[in-house]
Amino acid sequence: MKLLVFGATGGTGARLLTQALDAGHAVTVVARDPGAIVLPDRARSDVIQGDVLEPHTWSGAMSGHDAVLSCLGTRDRKHPTTVYSQGTANIIDAMNLAGVRRLVCLSSAGLEIPPGTPLGQRLVTRYVIQRLYRYGYADMAVMERIVRASDLDWTIIRPPMLTDSPSTGKTTSISRAELARHMLEHLEDRKTWQQIV
Rank of each mutant, 00 (worst) to 15 (best):
P34Y: 03
E54L: 06
D41F: 08
G73C: 02
F6Y: 06
D189I: 12
A8N: 04
E144V: 02
W193K: 09
S70V: 00
M143F: 01
A141S: 13
Q194P: 07
G110A: 15
R134K: 14
R42G: 08
I92P: 06
M183W: 00
A8P: 01
Q86R: 03
V27C: 08
K170H: 13
Q121A: 10
L119R: 10
A98Q: 11
A23D: 15
G13R: 00
Q121E: 13
K170T: 15
I157H: 01
H79V: 14
M1P: 09
D189Y: 10
V5E: 05
T117N: 08
T172P: 05
A98I: 11
D33S: 13
L17P: 05
Y127V: 10
A14T: 13
K170L: 12
S150F: 06
S63K: 11
G116S: 07
G7F: 03
S173A: 13
Q130N: 09
R134N: 12
A94C: 08
P160V: 09
M62P: 06
R122F: 05
S167N: 09
T88D: 01
R77D: 07
L39F: 11
T81P: 01
H25V: 14
Q130C: 08
R42W: 12
G35W: 03
L106T: 12
G10R: 04
M161R: 11
D164Q: 02
R44W: 11
S107P: 09
T81M: 02
P159E: 08
A36L: 04
Y84V: 02
M95C: 08
A94L: 09
L3S: 07
R158V: 06
G11A: 04
I174D: 02
T171P: 06
